[in-house]
């Protein structure tokens, strides 16, 4: 049953990729990339969960409390930032591309081929 928590990550990744494969709009492609990325957060945090643990900082709880893995949280935090910045860059590219090319449909982007 708890296996499903890990499998959810794989499902989300594939859903994002499916959206990118079928996309007819480059802005949607970038959005789907963000979806695919959220799978990594889910996997990382699910991996770091400890049954009965609480979050690993000790201002409002005793230092003996069992806590979940802080390292994956730090990794996920880095990942969130990376994802947001990359999304911003790609959206900037998509915006300019739309302006210059007059289309957001990948089928109509024929500038580079062969």
């Amino acid at each position: 049953m708890t296996l499903l928590f890990f499998l959810a990550a794989g499902w989300i990744f594939l859903a994002g990729v499916y959206g990118m494969v079928t996309s007819r709009n480059i802005i949607r492609t970038v959005g789907c990339l963000a979806v695919a990325q959220s799978s990594t957060y889910v996997l990382l945090l699910a991996v770091g969960f400890r049954r009965g643990g609480t979050s690993p900082y000790f201002t409002d709880t005793s230092t003996r409390t069992p806590v979940v893995d802080p390292v994956v949280q730090a990794l996920a935090l880095t990942d969130v930032v990376v994802g947001a910045t990359v999304t911003a860059l790609l959206l900037a590219l998509a915006l300019q591309l739309r302006k210059r090319h007059g289309t957001v449909d990948p089928d109509a982007l024929t500038g580079l081929r062969g």
Partner: peptide
């Protein structure tokens, strides 16, 4: 260039997220 950069970015980022998995 915009199209090339966007393709570059999308493919490489997706691959990086695969690596992270």
């Amino acid at each position: 260039p915009l199209q090339g950069a966007l393709t570059f970015g999308v493919i490489n980022s997706l691959a990086a997220y695969g690596s992270l998995l």
